[in-house]
Computed example of a mutant assay.
Amino acid sequence: MRTAIIAGATGLVGKELVYYLSGSPEYSRIHLLVRHLTGNTNEKIIEHLIDFDQLQDFSLEERIDDVYCALGTTMKKAGNKDAFRKVDLEYVVTLARRAKELGAHRFLVVSAMGAEPKSMFYYNRIKGKMEKAVSKLGIETTVIVRPSLLLGERNEKRFAEEVSAVFMRILRPFIPKKYRAVAAEKVAGSMYHMALTATPGLHILESKEIEDIE
């Protein structure tokens, strides 16, 4: 049976990952890296209070198979570009590097549609730089998922995203599949599926491919 780490376990995709893995017979232990304890009482789950600025010092005494990363913020929540970069680039790359040092076979991370290191859009540029850095670390299997707009119940309200989600649902039949909003549950499900089935190497799933995974 496998042991996993989930970072970003209280976010939209992270909560779904916790649901999938805690109910999976494939996993015997799930370590959650959190800023605040969630109170999850599942016997498989161990929570670790983490200062993500000191993530490079995090260690475990047991073998780790899979590391799932759902870390991410918004420019509004972060407050400025430097703070956004720290969460969506630096924390993620540090976690991936630590995953390799801990002997993890698989690293699975949530990115975004349009991620590109040279993008004119800062958000996509940071996501692209993250992808490039993570893919260069040489982890046995790296899975990057690039969802479009995420659908689901967030802890905090994001007015612009809520409005966009409404229009995306209404216009869904007319939107090309690769641009359609995708449920956080589907994103988490695709990551879980890839953890169990992906061959060694780099795998990038665009939004359409996320939707197609059952």
Rank of each mutant, 00 (worst) to 15 (best):
R2V: 00
A4F: 08
I5D: 05
I5H: 04
I6V: 15
G8F: 05
T10S: 15
T10Q: 02
V13Q: 02
G14H: 10
K15C: 10
E16Q: 15
E16H: 12
L17K: 05
L17T: 04
V18N: 03
V18I: 15
Y19D: 15
Y19A: 14
Y20V: 09
Y20H: 15
S22I: 09
S24E: 09
S24A: 13
S28E: 15
R29M: 10
R29G: 04
I30Y: 10
L32K: 01
L32Q: 12
V34F: 06
T38F: 00
T38Q: 13
G39A: 09
T41E: 14
T41W: 00
K44G: 15
I46K: 14
H48E: 04
L49Q: 15
I50F: 08
I50S: 03
I50Q: 01
I50H: 04
D51T: 04
D53V: 06
Q54D: 14
L55Q: 03
F58L: 04
L60M: 03
E62V: 09
I64P: 02
D65M: 01
D66F: 05
V67G: 04
C69F: 04
G72S: 03
T73H: 01
T73C: 06
M75V: 02
K76Y: 02
G79T: 11
N80Q: 09
K81P: 12
D82C: 00
D82T: 10
A83D: 12
F84K: 03
R85I: 11
V87P: 07
D88K: 04
L89M: 09
V93A: 06
T94N: 14
T94W: 00
A96R: 05
R97S: 15
R97I: 01
E101F: 05
L102G: 05
L102D: 03
G103N: 11
G103R: 04
F107M: 07
V109P: 09
M113W: 00
A115I: 11
A115Q: 05
P117L: 00
K118N: 13
N124G: 12
I126Y: 00
K127S: 08
K129F: 00
E131S: 07
V134G: 09
S135L: 13
K136I: 02
K136A: 15
I139L: 03
I139C: 07
E140C: 09
T141D: 07
V143L: 13
I144W: 03
R146L: 02
S148R: 02
L150P: 07
L150R: 08
G152D: 01
R158I: 10
R158W: 00
R158F: 10
V163H: 05
V166R: 12
I170G: 03
L171N: 13
L171F: 14
P176S: 09
P176K: 03
K177M: 10
K178G: 05
K178Y: 12
A181W: 11
V182R: 05
A184Q: 06
A184W: 00
E185M: 11
V187G: 03
V187M: 02
G189C: 06
S190P: 01
M191F: 13
M191T: 08
Y192R: 00
Y192Q: 12
A195L: 09
A195N: 10
L196F: 01
T197S: 13
L202S: 04
L205E: 12
E206W: 03
S207R: 01
K208I: 08
K208W: 06
I210R: 10
E211P: 00
